[in-house]
Every structure is written in structure tokens, then in C-alpha cells.
Design a protein around this nucleic acid. Structure first.
Lengths: 356, 356
DNA sequence: CCGACTTGGGAAAGCGCTTTCCACACGTAA
DNA sequence: TTACGTGTGGAAAGCGCTTTCCCAAGTCGG
């Protein structure tokens, strides 16, 4: 079923059929346009995408590369991006690298081969030079051919992008904890090479330093992203630093893990130890106690990144900074010793569990 | 940068260049193949996907349509499918309809236009005849052109697919609750027209009927999928049937909502009321108490659906049935009045909250 | 009433590949 | 030596569209 079939069936030329079906080309007399439309419908014709792409030298495909579709952080961003793509009449090719860097490079190449209009690269930059360079190379090759890219949290990539104020978020968390009276605070961090992590931690460290509070090396432990990684890291942390009164987990999934580890260790949150997460994923309000966290407008972030890819008018290297906001829930409280009711007592806040 | 450029640069003909780059076509002398490879690398050439697709009359794209990427149920399935697609060297075009049926039809058409190898349709069939018919039509048109489709939980679509034993799951949940001694049980259901829902409910009803336990109409309330819908529905349910000792929510997200509603109403889970979910999403073990639920191997399901689309050898109408398993956690217990400690007492199980 | 425009249809030239089909050079068996 | 596979390179014909380019037919001011 090709366009010529439609043209023949409608009794017009191939050219006219094409024009009738594609608004925005040249005008076609109403009568003919209708005839072509009818013929197309009768034959249940749909254009051949690849042929169209070849002739037009542009596709209606836009690519998106995330670390893990299954991680709610990324699926929220993807949802935002897909909404915008839809608004522009584009289809999105979503690739999940499952944190395999070679796969990421490969996917960029394949999207280049597909002649995708643009690519949204989601995920922190890394401090690993070798990978960063290679990625820069393939992205440059893609852009040299007219492809547009936008990245999220990859300032060193040189393309347009949106950047989250992770440092500011970390700082806000630090201030919150200090304000509550904590000064023996630990951090459960993700993989060290991820710049996003570094920034959250840096902002946090800054806030503490401003207040003259130390953040010793052994109060910062590193684990895999995700719940299990967080639990494992938190377990190590509270073993080596049992005196901590607060823990900042660098994302909500890890914070959820912290809750598990603390509970296993018989520590009550927030009475004995306060816990703060980051991102405000749905899980943050599913736990008991619900997590105090730093909210990022993830869908909005995804939407913006996609818009950056799609609007041609914009300056090609625009960087869009976005801030989040602290959301205080029940996982934070003053430390035990300033509660005025005696240091290690098992006072429990009167929280209505599950109510959220 | 086209293949002719590469050919010229390597000093061979276009045909040879094509053959050298595409293993599986005709053999090319090693020397020439190497020359072509070098030339391609030097020019950082990647093939033009659309042109290739046009000439070969087949793409390396496979489509996937889900209701909502952001729903962990669907993202788990998507993850499984994408893994398999990757293994086959295909890229997946993921479309999220956000539960808009017109969008679903539109996406099938667009995937057809893109000449996608196959389409995985994820999401319950509906009892709405009009939509089912229209979907059947577009799918048939797609398949008539050689496209392959596989669906998840859409038995009425006539294409290959995997089907979850929702009825069996519902039955197991019913038996569990009965076994604990419950006989005043309510159900928080999703939208009535979704067949998946109906099956879960039907299996559940069957189990109760077998035991001679009634499931009166006013013990079944309907709400939107998701946490909020579940909370709202559960609130209605406990208001109109305050005597219930157990609630079966037809998925985990709604079960999470139930927990919220019960907590607001001052009812303790599982002491006053038991709650059971379905799916075993991550959230099921993030709540306190953790949810008893029926586990579905979602990634595996997604993987199977994708395999169904991709293997050409298989019988075209194969239906793959998959079972799940009950996972008993802390949200279920015997009903108050059989606890032997006096009916409405506020006995609380000694649960270590958050420990999960 | 006539040249200068405008409007809209159709023929045909690609877009960048794959894949026949043909040609040629060997090696081998008769 | 002849005849015939066999292995390998190249020319060229499409794949199904879009988009020039050309041309016929109307429109209009002078």
C-alpha cells in the first residue's frame, strides 16, 4: 500500500497525493484534497516513515537515554519529556543503559544512525575522564550532522541542558539539620564518581562548615544507588559512627535503605536519628515515618530538557538552572540530647504512623 | 557523510562498501573489508537508518505502548521488554498513553507508519466494545502488513500475548484471608471496565463463594488507579461498611492508599483491619506495615511479551500464561474477634515498624 | 484585449541505501 | 586445452516518498 496506489485510486498524480496528505506543502484544490483523503482512508494507507524520512532528510523521532527506566527518578523525568514530545508530534525512542557506559555510547551512535531529531541525555556526568571524552566525541559527531542534544546534569558535555541546583539542595538540607540542633551528622552517598552526588555533598559540607560543624571522612559512606545499597551503607555508617544523630542520604531510595538499616539496629527515626533524603520520589511519603527530603520537580525537568532539544530558535548552548525545595516531614527532629528529656531515652514522637 | 563517500575514500564501489559493512550479506575479500572499515571509522560514518530501512523494507525498531511510564507496574514491564529488545539489537520506541484511549490508537498507527518490527501492547483490555473494536482494526491493519504484535492481558485482541493469571491470584488472596478467619471483607477495585480488575475480583469472589462467604455489593468500591484513588475509595468503603475486618485492594498502589485511609480513620493495620495488595511493586515493602500482596514477575512478563513479538518461528497466536505467588507480610492478621483477646480491643502486633 | 502574474497539477529527479544481475578471473576436472 | 563452476567486484535498478521544475489555465490592471 503505497502513495502511488492512493494517487491512482484517487485519480490524481503522485505529487498531488503527497501534497494533499501533507499540510504545509503547497495548496491543493479542496476537491482533490478530499478525494485523496477518502482514497487514503479507504485503503487504510499510512505513509512509509522511513521513505518519508529519507526524502525529507528528517525524522519525527527523538531519542532519550536514561540510566534505568525502572528507577522512579528517571521514569518521572521520562514522563515529562514524553509529554512534550507528544505535544510536538514526535515519538520518543527510550533507551535504558542500566548504568552501562558502553551501552550509553552505543545508544547515542544508534540514535545518530536513526537520524533522530534530537537526543535527551539524562544522568549525572561522571568524573571518569575517559568516558566523558568518548561521550563528548560521539555527541559532537551527532551535532555536527545537525542533531540537537540536551543533557540533564552534565555540564561538562558542552551541549544545551538543564542543571539541577544540587549544591543548593545539599546546603538547604545541611541548614535544616543544623537548625534542629544536630552536629554529629553522617552522609550516605552514592558512587563517588557521579558529579550530582559530589554537588549534593559539597553543598551539604559547605553548610556545615559555615556553622563550624565538622564532617569527618568516616561520617561519609558510599554505596550503590537504590534501596539495598543505601541499607548496606547505612549499616556500615552506624556501626563505625554510633554517635550520629542525623543521616543525610543523597537520594530517597538510599534514604529508604537507611530507614531499614536503622530499624534493624533498633534505632528509632526521628527520635534517635533523623534521616533526610533527596528528590522527593513517591517512596518518600510511603515510608513510616515519611521522609523529609529535598523536592525536585522531576517531570518539569524532563519537560524542559525535551523543550531544549526541540526548539530550534533557542541559543544552542543554553543552560537552564532549576531549583527544588525542602519538604519537611516526620523523619527529622531535634537530636536526643537537646530534647530536654534526657539523652538516650526512648521518647517517641506521637506520630500517627502511615497517615502521611 | 554517505556510504558513497566511504566507498570512494576506500577506493571501492558502493556495492562493496555496503557488503563490507553489513555482515551476513555476501563475502568480501578481507583486504577490502578492512579498507572499508578503516574508511568508515576515519570519516566517523554511521549508516542512514531510514535509507537502510527503506531499502531493506524492515526497520530495527520495535514499539511498546504502555498506559503510564511513571507507574512502577509499567516501568517494570518496560524494563523487561527493553532488555530483550537490546539482546536482539533493536531499539524500542516507548509510548505512554496516560490512559487516553485515542492516544493508544494513534500510537499504533504511528508505529505502523514507522514500520516498526513489532508492537508490544501493555495494559488490560477493556469491556468498552467500541474501543476494543477500533483497536482490533488498527492492529489487524498493522499485522496485515507483516507487523507482529503481542499484548499483555488483552485476550480479546486476537494477537499473541501473555496473560497473567489474575483470577488465580484473586482466588489465592481470598483463600488467605478466609484462612485467617475473615468473613467480612471489602474490596477496593480499579475502574470497572478493565478486564484485569474484573478477573482479580472474580477469582476473589469465587474463593469466598466456595467458602460460603458473601461479598455484598456495598463491600466493593471502585476508585481510580493509584494511591489517591485507593485512599479515596477506601475511605468510602470503611464509612459505608465499618464492620469490615479485611480489605483487598486490587493493586499495590491502591493498597497503599487504603493504608492511608485506614490510618486517618484511626484503624490499625493489621490489628483492626487486614489489607492485601496485588503486584508486589517496590512500594509494597516500603510501607509500614509492609503489604501482603500477590507477586507478579513483571520484568519477566515484559521480557516474554517482547520475545513473543520477536521470534518469528513461534506460532503466531501463542498465548503465554503466567502465574504469580502470594507474599505474606505484616499487613494481614486474623480478625480482631477471633484473636481470643476480646473483640474490639486495640491489641497491636509486636511489629518492628519500618524493618520490613 | 493583451502581457504579467498567480494558482495548482504532473513529470521526474533525487534522498542513501540494498540487492539483483552481470563480468571477470581463477581453479579444477575432462 | 576446453568447459565449467566458484568466488568476488561493480553497475544499476529500485525502495516510497518529497520537491523541484515545467506548464496550462485563470485573473487582472491598463
Amino acid at each position: 500500500m503505497t502513495l502511488s496506489d492512493v494517487a491512482r485510486h484517487a485519480g490524481v498524480s503522485l505529487a498531488t497525493a503527497s501534497r494533499a496528505l501533507n499540510p504545509g506543502s503547497r495548496t491543493v484544490a479542496d476537491g482533490l484534497r478530499a478525494k485523496v483523503a477518502t482514497a487514503a482512508a479507504e485503503l487504510s494507507y499510512v505513509s512509509n516513515g522511513p521513505a518519508q524520512a529519507l526524502a525529507r532528510a528528517r525524522t519525527s523521532i527523538v531519542g532519550m537515554i536514561v540510566h534505568d527506566v525502572q528507577d522512579p527518578y528517571f521514569s518521572a523525568i521520562a514522563a515529562g519529556s514524553m509529554r512534550v514530545a507528544r505535544e510536538h508530534g514526535l515519538m520518543v525512542m527510550l533507551a535504558s543503559t542500566f548504568r552501562d557506559q558502553d551501552l550509553e555510547l552505543d545508544y547515542v551512535e544508534r540514535l545518530r544512525a536513526q537520524r533522530a531529531r534530537g537526543i535527551v541525555l539524562v544522568g549525572s556526568s561522571t568524573t571518569q575522564r575517559r568516558f566523558t571524552e568518548r561521550l563528548g566525541l560521539v555527541v559532537a559527531a551527532y551535532e555536527a550532522e545537525g542533531g540537537r542534544t540536551a543533557s540533564l546534569n552534565r555540564e561538562n558535555l558542552g551541549s544545551a541542558g538543564v542543571v539541577v541546583d544540587n549544591k543548593g539542595g545539599g546546603r538547604d538540607v545541611g541548614r535544616l539539620l543544623l537548625g534542629l540542633g544536630h552536629h554529629r551528622i553522617g552522609v550516605v552517598a552514592g558512587p563517588r564518581h557521579l558529579v550530582t552526588n559530589k554537588h549534593r555533598l559539597a553543598g551539604f559540607g559547605l553548610a556545615l562548615a559555615d556553622a563550624g560543624v565538622e564532617l569527618p571522612d568516616d561520617a561519609v559512606v558510599e554505596g550503590d544507588f537504590g534501596r539495598e545499597g543505601g541499607a548496606e551503607a547505612a549499616a556500615r555508617l552506624i556501626e563505625q559512627r554510633p554517635d550520629l544523630t542525623a543521616i543525610f542520604a543523597l537520594n530517597d531510595l538510599m534514604a529508604r535503605g537507611c530507614l531499614m538499616a536503622l530499624s534493624s539496629a533498633g534505632r528509632v527515626v526521628p527520635d534517635d536519628v533523623s534521616v533526610v533524603g533527596f528528590d522527593d520520589l513517591p517512596v518518600a511519603s510511603d515510608t513510616a515515618p515519611r521522609l523529609t527530603t529535598f523536592r525536585l520537580p522531576l517531570e518539569e525537568i524532563g519537560a524542559r530538557a525535551m523543550r531544549l532539544v526541540l526548539r530550534d530558535e533557542a541559543e544552542p548552548r543554553h543552560i537552564d538552572r532549576v531549583r527544588g525545595e525542602l519538604v519537611v516531614r516526620e523523619s527529622t527532629a531535634p537530636p536526643p540530647h537537646v530534647s530536654g528529656r534526657g539523652g538516650r531515652s526512648r521518647r517517641r514522637t506521637d506520630r500517627r504512623e502511615g497517615t502521611p
